[in-house]
């Protein structure tokens, strides 16, 4: 990124503009959390269970957030500090953001995000493209979610198989994601990671039940995730 573009990308204006949506989304998450927490109480879900849920989600979310920092660092030399921060904090996807940035700059005839020919004009265009390109997600929420939600609830109210349809959808989703990892015999580290974390989840729950150490069950999910990753770290130098 040349100095002229960097001056725009890292300007106070850019910091301010990117901070606003992030603050709004933060407030939104807090409102939803408070509202759901209270409603859970109204429904008879104990304070203890609610606290467990919050702690589980918070502890679990730390590890998958870390690679997002790496992606932010990859995008920063090309797009400045604040645009990657915004794009990964709001409707961000660790998988697609790199690709989206790359596609956006290539439309301007550059070789990729590392191209030093990124002018202030192209930077502003990339900001347009990267910001508007993802708006369809919240627009789907605004226009279709209420109707869709009502339709789903209507379907479930019929009882019988309809109650089982959504858990079945989830099974299909899991099959599509887990299947390739367990069949990846060429890079069997994915098999190791799936197996290690899967076995850990079962084992930790069983140990928790037998020993009465309920905290093990409460942290079984994040611990298993870290365990699966640790298995890959330990076994990669030995097996590959």
């Amino acid at each position: 990124m040349n100095t002229e573009t960097a001056a725009v990308a890292n300007s106070g204006l850019m910091l301010l503009l990117c901070t606003i949506p992030i603050v709004i989304v933060t407030i939104q998450a807090i409102i939803f959390l408070v509202r759901a927490y209270r409603e859970a109480g109204n429904m008879g879900i104990s304070v203890e269970t609610r606290k467990k849920v919050i702690l589980n989600s918070a502890v679990f979310s730390i590890v998958p957030s870390l690679p997002i920092i790496i992606i932010m660092a990859v995008l920063m030399p090309a797009l400045g500090k604040y645009l990657p921060w915004l794009r990964l904090s709001v409707i961000g996807s660790a998988f697609y953001e790199n690709m989206a940035a790359d596609m956006a700059v290539k439309a301007f005839g550059l070789s990729g995000i590392a191209d030093t020919g990124l002018t202030p004009s192209i930077f502003v265009s990339v900001t347009w493209v990267m910001t508007l390109g993802v708006l369809m997600y919240p627009l789907a929420n605004i226009f279709f979610l209420k109707r869709y939600d009502r339709g789903i609830k209507q379907m479930q109210s019929k009882g019988g198989f309809m109650v089982k349809a959504i858990p079945a959808m989830f099974l299909g989703l899991m099959a599509a994601y887990v299947g390739p990892y367990i069949a990846n015999y060429k890079n069997y580290m994915t098999i190791v990671a799936v197996a290690a974390s899967g076995i850990l989840v079962f084992s930790l729950s069983a140990i928790a039940k037998k020993s009465g150490q309920s905290w093990l069950n409460e942290f079984s999910f994040p611990l298993s995730l870290v365990g699966g990753m640790a298995a890959a770290i330990i076994l990669t130098p030995i097996l590959t």
């Binding site: 590890v63 998958p64 870390l66 690679p67 790496i70 899991m174 994601y177 887990v178 990892y181 580290m189 994915t190 098999i191 190791v192 990671a193 799936v194 197996a195 290690a196 974390s197 899967g198 850990l200 989840v201 079962f202 999910f221 298993s224 995730l225 870290v226 365990g227 699966g228 990753m229 640790a230 298995a231 890959a232 770290i233 990669t236």
Partner: peptide, 17 residues
Amino acid sequence: PGFDNLMPALMGAMGLP
């Protein structure tokens, strides 16, 4: 290797059970 295999580890913990 740990971060490279974050998704398989995640799917193992969530999907296998």
